[in-house]
Amino acid sequence: MAPNLRLNAVAFISPQNHPILIRTFAKQDEHSIKYHYIAHTSLDVIEERVSAAGKATECYLGLLYAMEDVAVYGYITPLKVKIVLALALSDSVVRDVEITMIFKALHMTYYSAISNPFLKLNPPTDAAHDHSPYLLVGSPKWKNFRMRVDEISRVVGNTPNAVSNP
């Protein structure tokens, strides 16, 4: 049986390609910058896949690349928010169904997080870079989003073959 999937990091990237939230679950803090690079470079592959697929783009973009000790998967929501997943590389087949399931859970988490009406209240003046208030869901002020993402990572890591035997 395939071993558990282990999430090393999750990144949410806005349609304008600005980072919303980059959450790392790996222990070493000095490597967290690595996942910023991974999230950023993934955009190249995501754009390539999206433009190659034309209008018939599926949300799930599959394995983007594998480098060092992680395999990077991508997902794009219909509103062009990109979700990037860095899985710890292990020598086993990763089933697309499982990854898609994780992505859907992350998508729903993001979706419910931005439904928070208080996000639009009193937006800080210093967040003048992006027109979308949704970037704010990743700010440390809104803990719920982070908690839910962490929860997904925990569940994925603890459940053996989380979704492979429905």
Partner: peptide
């Protein structure tokens, strides 16, 4: 058809030079 093993996914040589 269900998925691939990422460690068996061959990529272009640039990745290996990088490594």
């Amino acid at each position: 058809s269900l998925g691939i093993n990422p460690s068996h996914a061959l990529q272009h040589p640039g990745f290996y030079y990088y490594m």
